[in-house]
């Protein structure tokens, strides 16, 4: 029997809006708490959504983060319109970053975001069309890592 994936929420993220970085991740965290999702899962999803949110803010024009909850898993889908990622393998390498000085001054741009999303996910996919945008999917299983 196919498991049903319920859309729990769609959250809008505006590019370059660093002041609000983390607001969407906090909303998602609150939604998962209200659903009674286990703390350990919420902690992992918080890292994933924060990094995805900051990447949209840092490198894209705008995007959305969609949250799906199904009986055994939480799925996060971050979709944006923007410059995209020309070399996914390179972008996933820890330490690789194209962040400029203004981004680094705020403590972002360590080049660990995508690597950490992958590390905290049970299923991870990242695709991008340079010039158009980026699509990241991360699944955290309730009985996962």
């Amino acid at each position: 029997m196919p498991s049903e994936k319920f859309l729990e929420g769609i959250y809008y993220v505006q590019g370059r809006d660093f002041v609000d970085a983390g607001v969407v991740s906090s909303d998602i965290k609150r939604a998962l708490k209200e659903k009674g999702i286990p703390e350990s899962v919420i902690r992992r999803v918080a890292v994933i959504t924060f990094e995805a949110e900051v990447n949209i803010i840092s490198y894209a024009d705008q995007g959305t983060i969609q949250l799906f909850v199904e009986p055994g898993a939480v799925t996060v889908e971050a979709v944006d319109i923007g410059q995209g990622i020309p070399d996914i393998e390179l972008a996933l390498q820890e330490g690789y970053s194209t962040a400029d000085d203004s981004i680094r001054e705020m403590g972002f741009g360590a080049g660990m975001g995508l690597a950490n999303i992958r590390k905290y996910s049970d299923v991870f996919t990242l695709t991008s069309e340079p010039g158009n945008g980026t699509h990241l999917t991360s699944v955290v299983k309730l009985d996962g890592k």
Binding site: F18, V19, A21, G22, V23, S25, S26, K29, R43, A46, F50, E105, M106, G107, F108
Partner: peptide
């Protein structure tokens, strides 16, 4: 413990 002062540190501390 940090030397960052930007508003984003609050989001991190709150999420964690």
């Amino acid at each position: 413990v940090t030397r960052q002062v930007h508003v984003n540190i609050v989001a991190v501390a709150s999420l964690k």
